[in-house]
Amino acid sequence: MDDNTRRTLLKILTTLPIIGASLLAVHALLRYFRPTLAGGVKALMAPPDEVPSSPQIAATLGDLTKPWDFKEFIYVRTSVEYSALKTQGAKIPGFVVRLPDAVPGVDPKDPKTWFVVVQRICPHLGCTFNFIPNREELFGGYNFAAPNPFHPYFACPCHLSVYDPTRSSKISGTVKGVAFDELPGKVVSGPAPRPPRTMSFDIVDSKILITDTEGGGIG
């Protein structure tokens, strides 16, 4: 075969552009299938483009006066997606829970420390979890025997992950460009790998205003 070097060269010269062209075609096809891409080869491996969403009211302070008062809300996060509008709002359900003053970290003078705000999307496999203020329900429905003294927990019906809103665990990430190193909602039972995804919030005119959400989950 060594005497056919010219043919070899020609073969290689014709094959390389074919391979290149097919790679480009595959890339175009992938972009067709992945509608969240803004563009470019680099974007193929990048996380989706997040369009900034507007601040939305979750609750007023008057709703949450007693310890363990909670409120469900929906935060609409817009993202680049296939639709006639080119963006689409994903509903992110959330919980805001008023903690008792006895929980460490709660400062009676600083209203921002009174609340735990989480996305209700279970970080395990994406189900919407519940707020369970009842020991029997937690034991019977979610396979978790809560220790004494009892307080409510977040619990997910799909694979029985249970989160403790009063305890936090170490995890690093960013929300609204601000880095955090721990989040409330330590996993106390079940397969979840991390505490629920967080939301950044401000308290303006005694209203709890959600400003942004931690990305990553499926809405």
Binding site: P35, A46, S79, E81, S83, A90, K91
Partner: peptide
């Protein structure tokens, strides 16, 4: 992990970052 291929797969399956019309 850096290639984000899991996220890409999920988004190809769903047509976005959430379950919706797409």
């Amino acid at each position: 992990n850096a290639t984000n291929q899991g996220k890409t797969t999920a988004q190809i399956l769903l047509g976005g970052t959430s379950i919706g019309p797409a």
